[in-house]
Structures are given as C-alpha cells and as structure tokens.
Amino acid sequence: MKKVLLCALCLVVACGACLLTGCRGNSRKSTVSAAATAAASDVLEIDDLLLAADSLVGQTVTIEGICTHTCKHGARKIFLMGSDDTQTIRVESGELGSFDPQCVNRIVRVTGRVDEERIDEAYLANWEAQAKARTAEKHGTTEAGCSTEKAARQETGNTVGERIADFRARIAARKAAEGKEYLSFYYVTAQSYEIQQ
C-alpha cells in the first residue's frame, strides 16, 4: 500500500512539474507574442490614422499603405491608401526634398508628424484672390486640380469656383452640425520612408 501511495505521490509531483513547466513555457510564448504584437501595432494602418488624426496632430507616427500617386511636380507629395480609395492620406516630403517615383503601386512605410490643414473662409477668400490674379499654385494639368488630392479631400467640383463653392457648403454644414467654421484635412510630414515591396 505504501508503494502504491508513494508511486501515486511521485506521479502527482511529476504531473505538477510538467504543468508548471508548460505554463512557464506558455507565458514566455505569450510574452514574446505580446512583444511582437506591440511592435507591429506601432505601425498604424491608414484607416486607423484617419480615425484618430485629430488627437494625433503634432505627434510622430509610423504608417504604412499602398502608394497610389506621386505628385508630378517634383514628387514632393505621395498619397497612401488604406482599406479602399476612400481611406487616403497625403504625405509631404518636408525636409526630405522629394520621394522616389518608384513608390507608386508599392507598400510604403512612412515615419513623420501628423499635421492639420484647416480650410476656412479666410483660406477660401485668399484662394479666390489668387485664382483671379492667376497666381494660385496648380496641381494637375487643369484648374480642376490633382484628382488624387481631390479624392483624398472628397472634393466634387471641377473648376476653382466649383471647388470653393463645395468647400463653403461643407463648412456651412459643419458649422450647423458641430459649430466649427472650418474643415480639417490631415496629412503627414515625412521624416523618413521606405518602400516595403
């Protein structure tokens, strides 16, 4: 009887040791997995950045998305797309000077500062004055502007006048809904970037 109890006790101790070792191994794996997940989560998806952009202004982030367009005027801007073409953010080259045109149709990872561009009545009045004086900076080949930038800002107009009228209508709608007399467009000023594939 003593031998049976001793064998049973040894079996219980051995099983307990295996369980403890197994648990420690799993917690170590969990720690490694948690660290890998944390490192991966340091890179924001474009959709997530756009959702939280107002709270990220002035902060440095790392984002990754598909580059859909490089500005034809010196490649100073690229546009990164998230889950679909309604989830697009402009990235400006800042002190980098310009982007490699090879970025287009490839995944690009950018580290940079989130900035906000506000369009209000003063901005629109200045744009109108520049358009009348023909000194406004042009993007694209016509006054309709760069189609990629327009899509990122959800613009509908094709002429400067239509675009300004569209912005005024959107500002009025936002003022009625939120009390804010401006539109916010967020972009990233790059500090570094790399083509992923």
Rank of each mutant, 00 (worst) to 15 (best):
T141L: 10
T31M: 13
A131P: 00
G179V: 15
T156K: 06
T159V: 00
L44N: 05
T142G: 03
E149H: 09
A122L: 09
V13G: 07
R106M: 14
A144K: 13
K132Q: 04
E117D: 05
D84R: 00
G140Q: 05
S33R: 11
C15L: 13
T189N: 06
E178V: 05
Y182N: 09
S30M: 07
T135I: 04
R170V: 10
N105V: 10
R118E: 02
A8N: 15
L6Y: 06
P101W: 02
L49C: 09
K77T: 01
S98V: 06
A38D: 13
Q154I: 00
M1Q: 14
K180G: 03
M1N: 12
Y123L: 04
A40V: 08
I78W: 00
Q191K: 10
K72D: 07
N105M: 15
G179A: 15
T159W: 04
S30L: 14
M1D: 08
E137F: 11
A190P: 08
T37V: 12
A40K: 11
I107Y: 15
A176E: 08
I195M: 10
L44H: 07
E117C: 12
V32H: 09
A136P: 03
T189R: 06
D166L: 15
I119P: 11
A52D: 15
I89H: 04
E92R: 13
G94F: 05
K2G: 03
Q191M: 12
R163K: 15
E178Q: 07
N126E: 04
S192T: 14
R174C: 09
S55I: 12
T141F: 05
T21I: 12
Q102Y: 06
L51E: 11
I46P: 13
R24A: 07
I171D: 04
N158I: 07
A53S: 01
V57A: 01
A39K: 15
T142H: 02
A131H: 06
A8E: 15
V104H: 08
H73T: 04
L56M: 06
L6F: 13
R24W: 14
Q130D: 13
R113W: 06
R113M: 02
E121W: 14
A165R: 06
V4P: 07
I107C: 13
F79H: 05
A38E: 14
H139Q: 02
K150F: 02
G25S: 15
S41T: 08
